[in-house]
C-alpha cells in the first residue's frame, strides 16, 4: 500500500459514517424543507414557501422568543453555577470528593425521574408539594405559586431545572480547567497580597477563558437544540414554555407538516450558527490574550 495514501484510507470508514449519518440527513432535510412533505409522501417543490410561512407564524415566533429567554437563563446559569461549584469543591476541604460526586448525580439521572421529582416537589402544598411547604413554613406563603403551571413563571422554572440538571457537568469542565492552572501564579498573587476574591478574579478567571469559551458554547447549543426533554416532561410545552424544538415536534408529529418542521429546524440551525460565529469571532481576541 502506498504509505502516503494510508492516512486517507484510514479516514474512509469514519468519513463514510459521517456522510451517511450526518451529511446525508442534513442534505435530505434541507431538500425536504423546500418540498411539500407530509411524512409519507414527498410532493411538489415549494421553494422558500415553508420558510416564509414559518417566519410569519406568530406561534413560531413566540416559541422562538421562549427559546431565547430559556437560552439566556440556561447559558448564564450553567456557567455561573458550574464555576461557583467548581471553585467550592476545589478548596482543600474534607469530603470535597464526595460532594463532587453528589453534585454530578443530576447529570446521570433519567429525565423521567427528573420530571417526576420536580413536578411533585414544585406542586401545590395541598398536593404534597415540598417547595411551597418550605416557603409557607418560613413565613413566605405569599411567594407560593404554581411553579410549573403559570405562564411567565413556568419557563423560568423549567430553565432553572435545566441549570440544576447540567451544572454538575459544567462544574467538572471548570474543575478540569482549574487543575491545569500553574500553582505558582497563585503563589505570586499571594505574595502580592491578593485575597481570595482577587486571586479568583485576576488568576482563575483569565486562565479559565478557553474553558469558559467551550462551556458557554456547549451550554448555548444545548439550550437551543436539547431543551425538548426537560420541557416535555415538566410542562408538555404548555403554560408559555413552548420552545422551538417542542413546536417543531408538534408541527411534524401532531399536525403531520414535516415540511414546515424541517424549515423550522433549518431556521434554528441558522440562528445557532450565527450566534456561535459571532461568539467565536468575539472570543478570538480574548483568547489570544490569554
Amino acid at each position: 500500500m502506498n504509505t502516503s495514501a494510508t492516512p486517507y484510507a484510514l479516514l474512509v470508514p469514519g468519513m463514510a459514517l459521517l456522510f451517511v449519518f450526518m451529511l446525508l440527513p442534513i442534505g435530505y432535510g434541507l431538500w425536504l424543507s423546500v418540498h411539500d412533505f407530509d411524512g409519507l409522501h414527498v410532493g411538489a417543490f415549494a421553494g422558500l414557501a415553508h420558510y416564509r410561512e414559518v417566519l410569519s407564524d406568530p406561534s413560531f415566533l413566540q416559541a422562538l422568543g421562549h427559546t431565547v429567554i430559556f437560552a439566556i437563563i440556561v447559558v448564564i446559569g450553567k456557567n455561573v453555577v458550574g464555576l461557583a461549584l467548581a471553585s467550592l469543591v476545589s478548596l482543600p476541604l474534607r469530603g470535597s470528593r464526595a460532594v463532587r460526586t453528589i453534585l454530578f448525580l443530576p447529570v446521570t439521572l433519567n429525565i423521567i425521574v427528573i420530571g417526576a421529582f420536580w413536578t411533585f416537589f414544585l406542586s401545590a402544598r395541598r398536593f404534597g408539594g415540598l417547595f411551597n411547604e418550605i416557603l409557607f413554613s418560613l413565613g413566605l406563603g405569599s411567594l407560593e405559586a404554581s411553579w410549573l403551571a403559570t405562564p411567565g413563571v413556568a419557563l423560568v422554572t423549567v430553565a432553572l431545572v435545566e441549570v440544576w440538571r447540567w451544572s454538575g457537568l459544567h462544574m467538572l469542565i471548570f474543575l478540569a480547567g482549574m487543575q491545569t492552572i500553574d500553582p505558582s501564579l497563585y503563589d505570586a498573587a499571594r505574595l502580592d497580597g491578593a485575597n481570595a476574591w482577587a486571586r479568583f478574579r485576576n488568576v482563575t478567571l483569565p486562565q479559565l477563558k478557553p474553558i469558559l469559551f467551550v462551556s458557554t458554547l456547549l451550554a448555548l447549543m444545548g439550550a437551543f437544540v436539547r431543551s425538548f426533554d426537560v420541557v416535555w416532561v415538566l410542562t408538555r410545552a404548555g403554560f408559555g414554555t413552548d420552545v422551538v424544538v417542542t413546536h417543531l415536534y408538534n408541527e411534524a408529529f401532531q399536525f403531520g407538516r414535516f415540511d414546515r418542521a424541517a424549515a423550522m429546524g433549518y431556521i434554528l440551525f441558522a440562528i445557532i450558527a450565527v450566534i456561535s460565529f459571532v461568539y467565536v469571532a468575539a472570543s478570538k481576541g480574548g483568547r489570544a490574550n490569554v
Partner: peptide, 13 residues
C-alpha cells in the same frame, strides 16, 4: 391549581 396535575396525580388526590 388543577393545571399542576396529570391524570395519575389527579386520581391519587
Amino acid at each position: 391549581q388543577s393545571n399542576e396535575l396529570d391524570e395519575d396525580a389527579m386520581k391519587a388526590v
